[in-house]
């Protein structure tokens, strides 16, 4: 593996760790944006240009901004009292470590069966577009409907109800 891969992987993991560990909620949102950008670079290094740029547009552009908005709307930026971690943090940490141990063990045990370096697949954006409106047209329509419903639902859920103001 190249130095570039290790650099991007270290950036991504560091962003993820910072997002989980930092005290200030706004800093966590910025760190998770770094992790999303690192993942986009990993996608680009895997010759998946379309998904890499979609990742930047959707995650770095939209989801990270949405998270910052939610933090500011809920006054999450104010300092918290009594620690940022839950009372049962040790159980969660043990579960996460166990999951990583099992996943890492499975990957390392099967590493000899995994394929070695292969030629970069020659897939253009045109191929992706043709596949989206050809073989995958029904999932595409369902996702369009889901996104519409989710947008309307999110607005209705977060809407301020004047008559029931307490």
């Amino acid at each position: 593996m190249s130095v570039v891969f290790y650099g991007i992987a270290a950036l991504t993991v560091a962003g993820g760790l910072a997002a989980v560990l930092l005290k200030n909620t706004v800093h966590c949102a910025l760190a998770v944006a770094v992790a999303f950008a690192g993942l986009a670079l990993l996608f680009l290094s895997l010759d998946a240009q379309f998904v890499g740029f979609a990742q930047i547009l959707v995650y770095v552009g939209a989801v990270a901004i949405l998270i910052v908005f939610a933090i500011l709307l809920t006054r999450g930026a104010e300092p918290v009292t009594g620690g940022v971690f839950s009372k049962s943090w040790l159980v969660g940490l043990v579960i996460a470590a166990g999951v990583f141990a099992v996943l890492g063990w499975a990957v390392l045990q099967s590493a000899h069966a995994l394929p070695l370096v292969t030629a970069a697949p020659a897939v253009t954006v045109q191929d992706i577009g043709v596949a989206l409106v050809g073989r995958y047209v029904l999932p595409l329509e369902i996702v369009a409907l889901l996104l519409t419903a989710a947008t309307i639902g999110a607005v209705i859920v977060a809407l301020h109800e004047k008559e029931r103001t307490r």
Partner: peptide, 12 residues
């Protein structure tokens, strides 16, 4: 694993 740890341990 990092995401799972965050989802299980954070209070916010």
């Amino acid at each position: 694993a990092i995401g799972l740890a965050g989802a299980l341990t954070r209070r916010n």
